[in-house]
Simulated assay, not measured.
Amino acid sequence: MERIEHRACSGGWQDVYRHRSEVLGCEMNFAIYLPPQAAARKLPVLYWLSGLTCNEQNFITKAGAQRYAAEHGIILVAPDTSPRGDEVADAEGYDLGKGAGFYLNATEQPWAKHYRMHDYIVDELPALIEANFPATGARGISGHSMGGHGALVVALRNPGRYRSVSAFSPIVAPSQVPWGEKAFTAYLGEDRSTWLQWDASELVALASERLPLLVDQGDADDFLGGQLQPQRLQAACEVVGHPIELRMQPGYDHSYYFIASFIGDHIAHHAEAL
Rank of each mutant, 00 (worst) to 15 (best):
E27T: 12
M28G: 04
M28D: 01
N29T: 11
A31F: 01
I32T: 09
I32A: 09
Y33F: 15
Y33E: 01
P35V: 13
P35G: 08
P36M: 11
P36S: 12
A39I: 08
A39N: 11
V45H: 00
V45I: 12
L46Q: 11
Y47L: 15
Y47A: 15
W48E: 14
W48P: 13
W48T: 12
W48M: 15
S50M: 13
L52P: 06
T53N: 09
T53M: 08
C54Y: 00
N55H: 07
E56K: 07
E56R: 09
E56P: 02
K62G: 03
K62I: 08
G64M: 12
Q66R: 08
Y68N: 10
Y68F: 15
A69L: 11
A69C: 15
A69G: 06
A69W: 00
E71I: 08
G73C: 10
G73A: 09
I74E: 02
L76T: 00
A78P: 05
A78Y: 01
P79H: 05
D80K: 10
T81M: 06
P83E: 04
R84T: 05
G85V: 09
E87T: 12
E87G: 03
V88H: 04
D90I: 09
D90V: 07
D90H: 07
E92N: 12
Y94A: 14
Y94V: 15
Y94D: 12
D95I: 14
D95C: 12
D95N: 15
L96D: 00
K98Y: 06
G99I: 06
A100G: 04
G101H: 02
F102K: 08
Y103F: 13
